[in-house]
Simulated scan of single mutants.
Amino acid sequence: MKPWIKRTLVGIFGASIMVGGLTACSSGVHRHGPMSPEKMAEVRAKVVDRVSGKLDLNDAQKQKLNVLADRMEAQRTAFLGKTADPRAEVQAIVAGDKFDRARAQSLLEEKTRAVQANSPEVINALADFYDSLNPDQQQKVRELMQRRRGWMARG
Score class of each variant (00 low, 15 high):
Leu55Pro: 12
Val141Asn: 09
Phe13Glu: 10
Ala95Lys: 15
Ile5Ala: 14
Asp70Ile: 04
Asp56Phe: 13
Gln116Glu: 09
Glu73Asn: 15
Arg44Pro: 12
Val19Ser: 14
Ala60Val: 02
Lys82Cys: 03
Arg31Gln: 05
Ala84Ile: 05
Val115Pro: 08
Ser27Lys: 08
Val67Leu: 09
Leu55Met: 12
Phe79Asp: 05
Glu121Leu: 02
Ile123Met: 04
Glu110Lys: 13
Pro86Met: 04
Leu68Asn: 13
Ala102Cys: 10
Phe79Gln: 01
Arg7Glu: 15
Gly155Lys: 06
Ala24Val: 00
Val90Arg: 07
Met145Tyr: 02
Thr77Val: 14
Val51Arg: 03
Pro86Tyr: 05
Arg31Asn: 09
Asp56Thr: 02
Val43Asn: 10
Lys82Trp: 12
Met40Gly: 02
Val51Met: 08
Ala117Asp: 15
Met35Thr: 14
Leu108Gly: 13
Arg113Asp: 12
Thr112Ile: 14
Lys64Asn: 15
Phe129Gln: 01
Arg31Gly: 07
Arg147Ile: 03
Gln138Ser: 10
Ser26Gln: 14
Thr23Phe: 12
Asp128Cys: 08
Ala95Arg: 09
Glu121Asn: 14
Lys82Tyr: 04
Phe79Met: 02
Glu121Phe: 02
Pro120Thr: 00
Asn58Leu: 13
Gln91Thr: 07
Val29Asn: 01
Ala15Thr: 12
Val47Met: 15
Gly14Pro: 07
Ile17Asp: 03
Val94Asp: 11
Ser119Gly: 03
Gln139Arg: 10
Glu42Leu: 12
Met40Ala: 13
Ala88Gln: 13
Gln105Lys: 14
Ile12Ser: 07
Ser26Thr: 13
Arg142Pro: 00
Phe99Met: 10
Ser132Tyr: 03
Val43Lys: 04
Asp97Trp: 04
Lys111Glu: 10
Arg76Trp: 03
Gly96Arg: 06
Arg101Ile: 07
Ala104Cys: 01
Ala78Pro: 06
Gly150His: 03
Arg7Phe: 10
Gln61Val: 15
Ser16Asp: 11
Val47Thr: 06
Lys39Ser: 11
Gln75Trp: 12
Met18Gln: 07
Asp59Thr: 06
Gly155Ile: 04
Val48Gly: 14
Thr8Phe: 12
Gln75Arg: 12
Asp97Arg: 04
Lys98Tyr: 01
Gln91Asp: 08
Leu126Trp: 15
Ala69Lys: 06
Met1Asn: 07
Ala60Phe: 02
Thr77Gln: 05
Leu68Gln: 14
Ser16Trp: 06
Gln61Pro: 01
Ala74Gln: 09
Ile93Phe: 04
Glu89His: 01
Arg149Ser: 03
Leu55Asn: 00
Gly20Cys: 11
Glu110Tyr: 11
Ala84Tyr: 00
His32Ile: 00
Ser36Phe: 09
Gln91Ile: 11
Cys25Ser: 08
Val141Ile: 04
Lys98His: 12
Ala114Lys: 10
Arg149Phe: 07
Arg76Cys: 08
Met18Asp: 00
Leu126Glu: 14
Gly53Arg: 14
Ser26Trp: 05
Val48Pro: 03
Gln146Cys: 02
Ser36Lys: 06
Ala69Trp: 12
Glu89Gln: 09
Pro135Ala: 10
Val47Phe: 07
Arg87Phe: 15
Ala78Tyr: 05
Gln116Phe: 06
Arg154Gly: 10
Lys62Ala: 03
Leu107Thr: 06
Lys2Asp: 15
Arg87Met: 11
Lys54Arg: 09
Leu68Pro: 07
Ala95Gly: 07
Thr23Glu: 12
Ile123Ala: 08
Leu144Ile: 05
Ala45Ser: 05
Ala95Phe: 00
Ser106Cys: 08
Asp70Asn: 13
